[in-house]
Nucleic acid binder design. Structure first.
Lengths: 236, 236
DNA sequence: CGATAGTTTGATATCCTTCAAAACCTGTGG
DNA sequence: CCACAGGTTTTGAAGGATATCAAACTATCG
């Protein structure tokens, strides 16, 4: 089942016609290896991309070689509904794991939004949620210390994956390396490593290979003072 | 002249009909005192707000009393084109200065977007730019140190104000107090104060009262390694 | 089974914080 | 027009979270 539909249905109620249209959008898809770059800063994309499977991230590469990850994209996520409105990309998108990526020509995208108001609304919702997540990440990086920030991110990932049915209880596939976690929090690998050890030794998480398990949701959420309102998962 | 139109014209080419429609949107406006709260977390807004004059900010208030400013809104900026899509607000909006705020009922907003595709496109553009600014702020808070981050923000403010004709050469009205700057960078007032002193003593800026002057644009931009692409100011 | 990526550890340095107080504005009421 | 109040800016000294550097250890994969 198409995870884009599954994701949008957290917000929208689709009829069969809507679902058929969305399925039709994603017929042209390609399997890609981890690490591959999807879009580079300066590109002028004329396709919208949808992650049907696998993880990706948006990142900014700075002149001094530093990299900041500014968003993590999970299965079902869209790379910018209306991206072709902008002249050129101001950041890059790369794959964090092997992935299945659908390519949607801009005209088809425009067509479906004109013909299906429910879908257009759902895309607006998805854009607004992306922005809300970005705001919460500002708090993660700014106000919260390393431990609370990482705790917060792990809960966010878990909820977003549950939304598309990809969480296995309290446990899920989480392909970010410590280097990449460091790049999302603008900390060093060393400090991320010590932070993870702390969360582990407190019995809050288990992280083996690329599998993350939240051992104590309540305590982890309390530590991060997590509230899920910014994800806007509740249908009205 | 309506600053909303002026702002959107950085991207869109409007005809007289479009302009009339946008002017009609902003007829109901109210003058409000600095510090006033426009929207609170948990609110269920049914109006879109437009800043016709004055500054505002989006902020998140955390349980421990900390506050993180996650966006600064300048004259001409819109408080969420499609905000009524979400069930409730996940953050607050407050005024940073005395301001003139227009209230647009959601139906009117929807109506104008249906009837004027150019305007709908311009609103999408404005939303995408807001998101791009948020990403750049992540870099400001995360990767850049205090001096470079503040330098970067000042240049951004200057360019955004120029866009709507509110910069007086290299100098502009900038109402943020050091406390509020500290809240946007998640630093302490003490450190912001020392950062400002550094920028001043380097001959990069002058900041007297609420008036900021960029004394050396080139050096300030170089310090922040500023590139303006994320503001997407260039019409295609 | 060697190469390469990812994780872990220790010791020292730095940016930023904390606490506490003084100095400086700016507006308001008498 | 002065005096006071509250917000804002500035300063100093000491402490803490995270960085830096460098190296060892451990997976993973062709």
């Amino acid at each position: 089942m198409n995870l884009l539909i599954r994701k949008l249905e957290a917000f929208a109620e689709f009829d069969d016609d809507d679902r058929r249209a969305l399925t039709g959008l994603c017929v042209r898809s390609e399997r890609m290896r981890a690490g591959r770059s999807l879009i580079r800063e300066g590109d002028r994309p004329d396709h919208v991309r949808v992650l049907l499977d696998g993880w990706a991230c948006r990142h900014k590469d700075l002149p001094d070689g530093e990299r900041q990850i500014v968003a993590v994209m999970l299965p079902g996520d869209i790379c910018d509904v209306q991206i072709f409105i902008l002249k050129e990309m101001d950041h890059c998108i790369s794959l964090l794991s092997e992935a299945e990526v659908a390519l949607i020509p801009k005209d088809e995208m425009q067509g479906i939004m004109d013909a299906h108001p429910h879908i257009a609304r759902a895309f607006w919702w998805s854009t607004l949620v992306d922005e809300a997540i970005l705001r919460e990440w500002l708090v993660n990086i700014g106000t919260r210390d390393a431990t609370r920030g990482v705790a917060h991110l792990f809960i966010e990932m878990w909820l977003r994956l549950r939304q598309v049915g990809l969480a296995d209880g309290n446990s899920f596939f989480m392909p970010l390396t410590q280097v990449q976690l460091a790049e999302t929090f603008a900390l060093t690998t060393v400090h991320i490593n010590r932070t993870l050890q702390l969360l582990r030794s407190d019995g809050l998480i288990k992280l083996e290979g690329k599998r993350l398990t939240i051992l104590d949701v309540k305590r982890l959420a309390a530590l991060a003072s997590f509230t899920s309102n910014y994800l806007h998962l509740d249908r009205r």
